[in-house]
Amino acid sequence: MFDAVSDWAVGLMDRIGGVGAGIAIAVENLFPPIPSEVILPLAGFAAARGSMTVAEGIIWTTIGSVVGALVLYYLGRVVGLERLYKIVDKMPLVDVADLQKGVEWFDRHGTKAVFFGRMVPLVRSAISVPAGVARMPLGIFVLFTALGSAIWNSIFILAGYYLGENWEVVEQYAGILQYVVLAAIVGLVGWFVYSKVKARARS
């Protein structure tokens, strides 16, 4: 499956450049067994070969992430969680537990889960469903999805770009990388909140 996905993605990007990378990531959002940890480094590799620029890869994959997330958002909003559980249970290669993890993340972290959830495996796609069920404001959902996706996509595309033909290395260390990224973002947010509270206390 790894080889089939990579061959399909490379062919798509070679034919239509950044748009192809965006389509591949939109499909990845809707069909989680296609891993972004494969698609995104391949986009960087394609950029290194001249099929697109790095900026085009980041922009189009972020657009693709938002489009895929919006489909799941509206599914959650229109179909409802219980019926979606039944639908997912009948789908091949898709686990109900993945959707449940997204729901649990949203229940624990609220709207910010949409931002941080874009950098957590399995949760990344599923987080859009409970956001739709909860009728999270569309503007905030799109903003948080775009920001979280842009950070995640940029890291993997740049890694694939600089590694070139050795882009598979990114996929091997993706599990470690995603937690490093998440810890760094949580640290930055914590520092921002701390500095604001400290400044307010002084005033």
Rank of each mutant, 00 (worst) to 15 (best):
M1D: 11
F2T: 01
D3A: 05
S6A: 10
L12E: 14
R15T: 14
I16R: 03
G20H: 12
I23T: 07
I25K: 11
A26H: 09
E28F: 02
E28V: 08
N29I: 02
F31K: 04
F31W: 08
P32T: 00
P32W: 08
P33Y: 00
I34Y: 14
S36P: 02
P41K: 03
A43D: 04
A43W: 07
F45I: 01
A46S: 13
A47K: 05
R49K: 13
R49V: 00
G50M: 09
G50K: 01
T53Y: 01
G57L: 04
I58Q: 03
I59E: 05
W60T: 04
T61D: 03
I63S: 04
S65T: 06
S65K: 04
V67K: 07
V67L: 14
A69I: 10
L72K: 10
Y73A: 09
G76Q: 00
R77I: 05
R77Q: 07
V78F: 06
V79P: 00
E82C: 01
R83C: 09
L84N: 01
Y85E: 08
Y85A: 01
I87N: 12
M91A: 14
P92T: 10
L93H: 06
V96L: 14
D98V: 14
K101W: 04
E104Q: 00
W105G: 00
F106N: 02
R108S: 13
K112H: 10
F115H: 10
F115Y: 08
F116I: 13
G117A: 05
G117E: 05
R118S: 14
R118C: 07
V120A: 09
P121Q: 06
V123W: 00
S125V: 01
A126V: 02
A126G: 05
V129F: 03
G132Q: 11
M136W: 12
L138A: 12
G139F: 14
G139L: 14
G139D: 13
I140T: 15
I140W: 12
I140V: 15
L143C: 06
L143A: 07
T145R: 08
T145A: 12
A146G: 11
L147K: 11
L147H: 12
L147A: 14
A150Q: 02
A150V: 14
I151M: 04
W152L: 06
I157C: 15
I157F: 11
L158T: 11
A159V: 06
G160D: 05
L163T: 07
E165P: 09
E168V: 09
V169C: 03
V169L: 15
Q172D: 06
G175I: 04
I176E: 07
L177D: 01
Q178V: 15
Q178E: 13
Y179S: 07
V180H: 00
V181Q: 09
A184W: 00
A184H: 03
A184Q: 09
I185E: 07
V186W: 04
V186C: 08
V189N: 12
G190H: 13
W191T: 10
F192D: 15
F192N: 13
Y194E: 15
Y194N: 15
K196Y: 08
K196P: 03
K198W: 03
R200W: 11
R202H: 02
R202C: 04
